[in-house]
Design a protein around this nucleic acid. Structure first.
Length: 570
RNA sequence: GUGCUUGUAGCUCAGUUGGAUAGAGCGUUUCCCUCCGAAGGAAAAGGCCGUGCGUUCGAAUCGCAUCAAGCACACCA
């Protein structure tokens, strides 16, 4: 990376300056203490390092330090200048042309970091109850999770995506009871859900169970003897609906882990026993309590209720232990911010059972607001529920994935349906896809002969298909030289893809990819407007065509990670 | 009441271990197609970085306090 090249050159120079005893009282330098930044004023250079922080060690004025260091720098064809305590760097042609060459050589793997520590990661996300359709909030976790999975894989990690099905517990009984009411309604009975607020909470009164009731009656005459049959039927139905939608949304899990099978396997009981043996369990009011406060939780938690049944937490502990026992180096969970109180207790249990709690990384995501016509629509529990499927049908998979990924996970996301639907520059998805389509269009024009519609006169194609293929397949790093000055900003942006991927993966923040792709599109559009790609000067045209190909490749790699299509035409 | 997250341009948001004149997009205003996709581009205007103290050469960034918004505080899942 150019940034790294710059730092290395400076760090080497510092070492040499120290060896020559020129840096005052500074006798040693630890690599990595200086950071590269982007100069505020682009005239200063492409990158900058502020050496002011060395002043206290060297006991010299920052500009003096900078100038001293500069004497020892191997400058090659790059330009180094000092302003105040800053050493500014302007990238020379060699690095720029090598940057383009790298894109051609690495192609699909361009941007994959080298020499990084990779891990075996279990990424758990969505993990919804199978009691109804996904709402818009689930869409954020689905999109971010699958983008993160793509990103971490691209980084080099071994990623296993898992969906934990909360298919045990009282909500399934609620589901069965609710389906029974819908079935009786279908059979013509005059029944309805309770109107009493509190009573109503024991049911799912949404319309979505009506088709399930119809489906049930296709193969059954009436209500079954045992309500459990309805629970199972509805659960299986909703699970299927959820899985189908995930596929449609380009979200692919390696495994769906059923809470019920966890209970049946005896792993939950085993976990409770193990906790008891560790002496971290005590009895109070007829229930078993886990001393989670010994591990940083703000209070102890019930692990077995007075009626003898386990709590949700108990199963969750067993689930996390099971994940660790399956040999993963790291567990990453994406949870809604409404579950943040849960992190401490799960970590506490992991520690109490003798595992490293730092292996669990919980990404807490803030919630989603739906904006319609500029007004925020509150996500009520019952009324006005907009499902993820409705949203996808309305704005499409590409726009939904992009919008759900484009914000920092720590901020609530406003999803503006109208904006996401528009095909204009207000919509970042279209802006980016348009850039790709435009690049493709130029490449098409390069190898097409033109026919004048009035005169019928033919103009030969600017280059043959063979020439284009040769340019791409056996790319020569000198090709780019004629356009290297005018395309400098664009080339640097292309090169930035590598460092962007690295920080994005390491900070688990996928929105940086969305931002990058918009910036790259912007640089490309800007280049396009001031440089005519197809032109008389053959060398220049080849250079610009090569650049367009490079842009297309990088856009493709970025959009692949986002799971957004890169259309050839729009 | 306690904890977590967030307060930056009219709106939606960036701001990478504290550093140069706080940056984008949208919106507003002005310009750019006889020529590769104007679904583009160039430029202008627009800021007490919620507020107040503190830490230091230096703060949007760190600390304390305070105000505001969202979320969570079950023997529910």
């Amino acid at each position: 990376m150019i940034k790294d090249y710059f730092v290395d050159s400076i760090e080497k120079a510092i070492q040499e300056a120290i060896n020559a005893d020129k840096l005052g009282e500074m006798k040693e330098y630890k690599s990595g203490t200086l950071a590269v930044e982007r100069p505020k004023n682009p005239d200063f250079g492409d990158f900058a390092i502020n050496v002011s922080s060395l002043a206290k060690y060297a006991r010299m004025a920052p500009p003096q330090i900078a100038n001293t260091i500069l004497e020892y720098v191997d400058k090659a064809d790059n330009e180094y200048t000092v302003i105040g305590g800053f050493i500014n760097f302007k990238t020379g042609k060699t690095l720029l042309k090598e940057a383009i060459k790298e894109i051609f050589v690495k192609d699909k793997n361009y941007g994959k970091p080298e020499n990084v520590k990779t891990e075996k990661i279990l990424l758990e996300y969505v993990s919804a109850n199978p009691t109804g359709p996904f709402h818009i909030g689930h869409g954020r976790w689905a999109a971010m999770g699958s983008v993160l999975a793509n990103l971490l894989k691209f980084y080099g990690h071994d990623v296993y995506q898992e969906f934990y099905i909360n298919d045990a517990g009282s909500q399934i009984q609620k589901l069965g009871k609710s389906l029974a009411i819908r079935i009786r309604q279908e059979l013509g009975e005059d029944v309805d859900f309770p109107t009493d607020e509190i009573e109503r909470k024991n049911y799912y009164p949404g319309d979505y169970l009506i088709p399930v009731a119809k489906k049930y009656l296709e193969t059954h005459k009436g209500l079954p003897e045992d309500i459990q049959e309805l629970c199972d039927f509805a659960k299986a139905y909703e699970e299927k609906v959820q899985r189908d939608l995930l596929e449609k949304f380009r979200v692919h899990f390696d495994n769906f882990y059923s809470e019920l099978t966890l209970h049946k396997s005896g792993k939950v009981e085993a976990c409770v026993e193990k906790l008891k043996k560790s002496g971290k369990i005590y009895q109070k009011d007829g229930a078993d309590w886990f001393r989670s406060s010994d591990y940083g939780d703000d209070q102890d938690r019930v692990i077995k209720k007075a009626d003898g049944s386990n709590t949700y937490l108990t199963a969750d502990i067993a689930y996390h232990i099971d994940k660790l026992e399956r040999g993963f180096d790291r567990l990453i969970n994406i949870w809604g911010a409404d579950h943040h109180g849960y992190v401490a207790r799960v970590k506490a249990s992991i520690e109490a059972l003798g595992y490293d709690p730092n292996k669990l990384e919980v990404l807490l995501g803030q919630l989603v607001n739906l904006v319609v016509n500029g007004n925020e629509v509150r996500m009520g529990k019952r009324k006005n529920m907009v499902t993820l499927e409705d949203l996808i049908d309305e704005v499409g998979v590409d726009a939904t994935r992009f919008w759900m990924s484009m914000r920092n996970i720590d901020t609530t996301l406003d999803f503006d349906i109208e904006l996401a639907k528009t095909n204009s520059d207000e919509n970042p998805v279209f802006y980016v896809q348009y850039a790709h389509a435009r690049a493709c269009s130029i490449l098409r024009n390069a190898i097409e002969e033109k026919i004048n519609s009035e005169t019928g006169e033919k103009t030969p194609a600017p280059m043959s298909e063979d020439e284009l293929n040769k340019l791409i397949k056996s790319y020569d790093s000198e090709t780019i030289l004629p356009t290297i000055e005018t395309a400098k900003k664009l080339i640097l942006k292309l090169e930035e893809f590598k460092s962007m991927i690295k920080t994005s993966a390491e900070t688990r923040q996928v929105y940086t990819i969305c931002r990058y792709v918009q910036e790259l599109a912007s640089e490309f559009h800007s280049f396009y407007n001031s440089n005519r790609v197809i032109c008389e000067d053959k060398q220049l045209m080849n250079a610009r065509i090569a650049l367009i190909v490079a842009v297309k490749k990088v856009l493709n790699n970025a959009l692949d990670i986002l799971g957004v299509t890169a259309p050839e035409r729009m």
